[in-house]
Design a protein around this nucleic acid. Sequence first.
RNA 1: GGGUCGCUAGCUCAACGGUAGAGUACUCGGCUUUUAACCGAUUGGUUCUGGGUUCGAAUCCCAGGCGACCCA
Length: 564
Amino acid sequence: MGGSNLEEIRATRIEKVAQIKELGLNPYGYKWESSHHADQLQEKYVDLAAGEEVEDQVAIAGRIVARRVFGKLAFFELQDETGKIQLYLEKKRINNTMSEDLVGAFNHLKKLSDTGDILGVKGTIKRTEKGELSVYVSEFQILTKSLLPLPDKWHGLTDTEKRYRQRYVDLIVNPQVRQTFRIRAKITAAIRRYLETREFLEIETPVLQSEAGGAEARPFITKHNTLDMELYLRIATELHLKRLIVGGFERVFELGRIFRNEGVSTRHNPEFTSIEVYQAYADYHDMMALTENMISDVAQEVLGTTKVNYQGEEIDLTPPWRRITMHEVVQDATGVDFTQFSDFDSAKTAAKDAGIEVPADCQTIGKLLNEAFEQKVETTLIQPTFVTDYPVEISPLAKPHRDKPGLVERFELFMVGRETANSFSELTDPLDQRARLEAQAAKKAAGDLEANDIDEDFLAALEYGMPPTGGLGIGIDRLVMLLTDSPSIRDVIAFPLLKNQSSAVKEFDYDTESQILRITFGNGSVYKYSDVPEKIYKELKETSSVGQYFNSQIKDKFGFDREM
RNA sequence: GGGUCGCUAGCUCAACGGUAGAGUACUCGGCUUUUAACCGAUUGGUUCUGGGUUCGAAUCCCAGGCGACCCA
């Protein structure tokens, strides 16, 4: 033993586990009572002078993140959730106090502990002569023996892929990451508190739905086995929360996970968190006020300020926020006044002259306006801005504008160039709603993967009558990105979705009779591909690169079942 | 979907067609004031995968995988 590749390090540590057991100790303890966290000690003894000791008895536990070991003295750094504190480990004191239970305790600690282990200690407080606050340890207990080495103590873990795939390691060695998730938790707690003090009820609605609705997005499809029923993961919470408004709740919200079967980027993760809020007898102006008050309150509560720094730019969240109509903001940016057009072709010509690319499926003035907005305006909206009064074509759940024909009462909130919230005076006319959803369903039938079928039960609810209602949805992840100065959504999601790494083909066999090709992958999963011609199997057997052949000729080309 | 960049020891990186190396970590020895401890010694590799070119490939070419960023 004594090598330094991963397997040898692990074997060495497993041997230490055995040695700890031989001493009559448990390397995987059951419980530890601490008197303090590291930051509490750092704060309490901040005025203790270098070289001073106090007799206060303390107990603390955490992970050993650094060891500096001498012959009869050792300094460990112990890290708990709140921070770090040094342990002052003196052979004489430890052996004296622990002599009854463990002879030669100090040497055992030296030999059997590693960075990464979880250690509990009891002792007094001492600030060393070099000025480092320390626990002057009299007793210790190895609470968990770690088998794998931590990343480089100085450079830490920087490989983004490893940081996301093994977030637990990232959290151990990168304090900033812990801080981000601490702030995230405070943000969601503050939002709930804000709404609860204003009489909003949080009600949980189904994740599994027989129709995906409430947004234009491609859903994930799953299956209930015993009911033999196809189900969708929700793409929004909207339609069920509105049913609750119909049912008589006047203020409801749900903060929860949404699933959209779409690409991954610095702004998108297939599962993300949204909050939707519905308030009866309110309109989108009320929701605008709610939005700016809630977000600025949350920032004040969590960060202590409404002026936040995002990627080097100061964002001022102090209300009131800028309000501008979509027509105005597009005209400011492009010089084109889309209200003046009476036919699509002249609008299209003007748009092209202004440098706007017009996709083939963009065939109304409203959609053209939206294209112009997305292409020329969206990323320029850095400070919080409510863009209001959207075209009806892109807003199937919003109520027609009370004064402006062809538009709806809707706003979206933009901050740092990203859409962060979306809100309407909700459409309550059941016949109008049916007509708009039928148009959506027709698009789905025509092959639009982001369009969805009609939720008849939702329409039935509207027919019973829904009071005038203001609705609001906020992208929690994007809000957290802003408030934690994170450039990527993956920095604020603890375990972001990544592609499976180990899909290498390990072995395969083929049954000529049933034409089933059975493939075992490196990660242990087994897939049975059906109706595979024998020719494919023979080629697979003869190819120089099985993995490459599999990817190009078999994967996605044949139906398969996963073998359990 | 397109483009650019990256992938080498547990971690952070070098080697730019000619013996795969450093720091750190690990292991062993020494050390009672360290804090990236120090001193000495040892060990550690599927250079992401598969082909190709070449006397010779981590390096060049082709295909694939995974990731990052940008664009749509």
